[in-house]
Amino acid sequence: MSPVAFIYLAVVLFSIGSASVLLRRNAIVAFMGVELMLNASNLAFVGFSRIHGTVDGQVLAFFVMVVAAAEVVVGLAIIVAIFRARESISLDDPSEMRG
């Protein structure tokens, strides 16, 4: 079996993650959808790294993990700040921000 199968698995996971971001209104669940999309791209990176026989893809996946960790820290802090301000984490509520 070829490692290309993992690229297709990454595509499936990315689609599920994007559907979650578009569908769910709970901010934390949508955020976990973003995490799933990042993980799917990591899987694609590692799969391509295996196909090409180098470690460059793995180093890139490592960078994505570091940036994702920083993003989670800031994102969850924003969610907590919004929850403190308006007692809700629904993504529909801050719609008064529209211009």
Binding site: P3, F6, L43, V46, S49, R50, V55, Q58, A61, F62
Partner: peptide, 10 residues
């Protein structure tokens, strides 16, 4: 999956 794809560190 990463360990299968020859990336044990990741």
């Amino acid at each position: 999956a990463y360990i299968m794809l020859a990336a044990p560190f990741l």
